[in-house]
């Protein structure tokens, strides 16, 4: 099976998302997936469209900036617009990107094959710039990005789209529960509203039983 992932790397946000995606790529390779890694400048429309149509990956993960109208790749190039939905509508898609759930995701609503997990509002996370050389050590974002990684990891393990969506929300809620404990470190509590936000606006459209 094939797994396509986009990892633009041109600002702090995309660099962090790309770094945390390495854990997903390693896991996918370990499970025997052929990983179609659209990293850095390879996260462009031509490359992504070609691999989507020629290689026909069953699972697709987008990392990057997005809007109601499109998901972008390297340096804000739109790589999937609403009119390109045909390229992904029969696949299981996880878009770790802002806003695209409410438009692109909803296009999956009546699909019998594909499924789309994403966010109806902005995907929020914090960083500490002193960790940009090693994002995986940044305590401001590690928990939230690891929680969102659970969605892709669950899909790679073969669970249904609905179950992967739920595992993501459960992971977010677990962080909230842990950080709200009276003995939890207070210095990270400021991330709680952003985690609650991501959990609230994460959506799953399409075939809820879709799985690899």
């Amino acid at each position: 099976m094939k797994f396509l992932i986009t990892r633009p790397e041109f600002d702090d946000a995309t660099l962090y998302l790309s770094e945390f995606s390495k854990k997903i790529i390693d896991f996918a390779k370990g499970k025997g997936f052929q990983v179609l890694d659209c990293v850095h400048a390879k996260a462009n429309k031509k490359q992504v469209s070609r691999w989507l149509s020629e290689k026909k990956p069953e699972l697709v993960m987008f990392n990057g900036h997005a809007s109601d109208e499109f998901i972008t790749g390297h340096k804000y190039e739109p790589i999937i617009r609403l009119e390109d939905a045909g390229l992904i509508e029969d696949k299981i898609v996880y878009a770790r990107a802002c806003n695209c759930g409410k438009t692109l995701g909803k296009l999956f609503d009546n699909k019998k094959i594909g499924a789309f997990i994403g966010y109806e509002r902005r995907f929020r996370f914090w960083i500490n710039p002193s960790f940009t050389h090693s994002p995986q050590d940044d305590p401001c974002c590690a928990q939230v990005l690891d929680a969102s990684n659970q969605i892709a990891l669950a899909l790679l393990k073969g669970v249904t789209a609905q179950e992967a969506h739920q595992r993501g929300i459960t992971a977010y809620n677990k962080i909230i529960e842990n950080l709200e404990r009276s003995d939890a470190p207070q210095e990270l509590r400021f991330i709680l509203p952003s985690i609650n936000w991501n959990a609230t606006y994460q959506v799953c459209y399409g075939n809820q039983n879709a799985c690899l």
Binding site: A13, H65, I127, N128
Partner: peptide, 19 residues
């Protein structure tokens, strides 16, 4: 008031690439 308690190093990532 809640913002005033944020640690000074923290940056909120925005969709336009700013933090």
């Amino acid at each position: 008031e809640r913002l005033s308690f944020l640690p000074s190093g923290a940056r909120l990532v925005m969709e336009n690439g700013e933090a």
